[in-house]
Amino acid sequence: MPTPNPAALDFLLTRRSRPAKTLTTPVPTREQLEPILTAAARTPDHGKLEPWRFIVLENAALDRLAGEVAQLGETLDYPADKVEKNARQFADGHLAVVVVASPVESEKVPQIEQLYSAGAVCLSLLNAALASGWGANWLSGWASHERAFCEDALGLAPHEQIAGLIYIGTESCAPPERPRPDLDAITEWVSA
Rank of each mutant, 00 (worst) to 15 (best):
P44L: 03
A66C: 10
H159I: 06
R88I: 03
D63K: 12
S124C: 12
W142V: 06
R88Q: 12
S117A: 15
N137M: 07
W138G: 08
L123F: 14
R147G: 06
A131Y: 08
G47I: 10
T38F: 11
Q32C: 12
L62I: 02
L95A: 05
D45M: 06
E151C: 13
T43P: 09
P79R: 09
K85A: 10
N86C: 13
P51K: 02
S106G: 06
A129Q: 06
A60V: 15
L65N: 00
L154Y: 12
N127E: 15
A40D: 04
Q111H: 05
Q71G: 04
E113N: 09
A61L: 09
L62E: 03
D77K: 12
T38E: 13
S117L: 05
L33I: 10
P44N: 08
A118T: 02
I36D: 04
A101H: 07
R88G: 01
A128L: 11
V83K: 01
P44F: 03
A129K: 07
T29S: 15
T29V: 07
N127V: 12
P51C: 07
L65T: 01
A60H: 13
V100Q: 01
I112A: 14
P35F: 08
C122N: 09
E74F: 00
H145E: 15
L76W: 01
A66Y: 00
R30M: 10
H46Q: 14
G67R: 01
R88K: 14
L130C: 11
G135W: 03
G133E: 10
L57A: 06
V99W: 08
A60G: 00
